[in-house]
Amino acid sequence: MTTSSMPCARPRLLAIVFKAPPQDQAAAQAAAQSGKLSQDIQLPLGTDGLASTLDGKPLDPQAIANEQKKLQDQLQQAAEKARQQLNANPAPAQ
């Protein structure tokens, strides 16, 4: 019998854990009696491709700022247009 020094090839997982309140009355009562007022919800996420993402080219902060400015301008224009339409067509008095 031989042993190998190579590690097992297991998929690596990252788990995100949320604290959630009980969903129904019976679970809420049981949780209150046990002193545990929340339950853990685990979401396992595969880490395949994470290294290549982290090792990739970083985002350009100036490009991000420009994109945010562009989106903000679009939102302001849409709000102004909606405001003008609302002022042009006021709701009838009741």
Rank of each mutant, 00 (worst) to 15 (best):
P11F: 09
P61L: 06
K70A: 01
I41G: 14
S34N: 08
N66R: 12
R10A: 15
L75I: 15
A28E: 13
T3R: 05
Q33H: 12
K70G: 00
G49T: 13
K36V: 11
Q77W: 14
T2D: 10
N89A: 15
R10H: 13
R83Q: 15
Q74G: 10
M6L: 12
Q23D: 13
A63H: 00
R12S: 12
P61M: 09
G46N: 01
A78R: 11
L50A: 01
P90N: 04
T3A: 07
A63E: 00
L59W: 01
A26M: 02
P90Y: 04
G56M: 07
M1D: 14
S38K: 04
S38M: 05
K69F: 12
I41F: 14
G35M: 14
T47G: 08
A30P: 01
Q25K: 11
N87V: 06
P22T: 01
T2S: 10
Q76F: 07
I41M: 15
A9D: 06
I64R: 02
R10K: 15
Q29E: 12
T53D: 02
I16W: 05
A79M: 13
P44F: 03
A91Y: 13
L86Q: 04
A28F: 12
P7E: 05
E80V: 02
T47M: 14
G49N: 11
L14H: 10
Q62N: 01
L50M: 03
G46A: 03
Q62D: 00
A65S: 02
K57I: 06
P90T: 04
K69R: 08
P61E: 05
P44N: 00
Q29A: 10
Q77K: 14
K81C: 09
G49P: 12
E80A: 11
P61C: 06
Q74T: 06
A51D: 09
P44M: 03
L71A: 15
S34W: 03
A30W: 03
R10N: 15
Q29K: 10
K57T: 07
K81P: 09
K19S: 06
R10F: 14
E80K: 09
Q85I: 13
Q62C: 00
Q25L: 13
Q74C: 02
Q77C: 10
L13Y: 01
A93V: 10
K36E: 08
L43F: 15
G49E: 09
D48Q: 11
P61S: 05
A79D: 15
P44W: 02
P90A: 03
N87W: 06
A88M: 14
L86T: 02
Q72I: 06
E67W: 15
D60C: 05
N66Q: 08
L86H: 01
I64F: 01
D40F: 03
P7V: 04
L50K: 07
L14A: 11
R83I: 11
G46I: 03
A51Y: 12
A91T: 14
A20Y: 14
D60E: 07
A26T: 04
K36R: 09
Q39D: 05
G46F: 03
A9H: 07
A78V: 03
S34M: 01
A51G: 07
A51K: 10
N66F: 05
D60L: 08
Q23G: 13
D40C: 04
N89I: 14
P58T: 06
Q33P: 11
F18A: 00
L59A: 03
P61Q: 09
L45P: 09
Q25G: 04
Q77R: 11
Q23C: 06
A78N: 07
A32D: 11
A93Y: 08
D55N: 07
L45R: 08
I16F: 10
D60R: 08
K36T: 10
S38E: 04
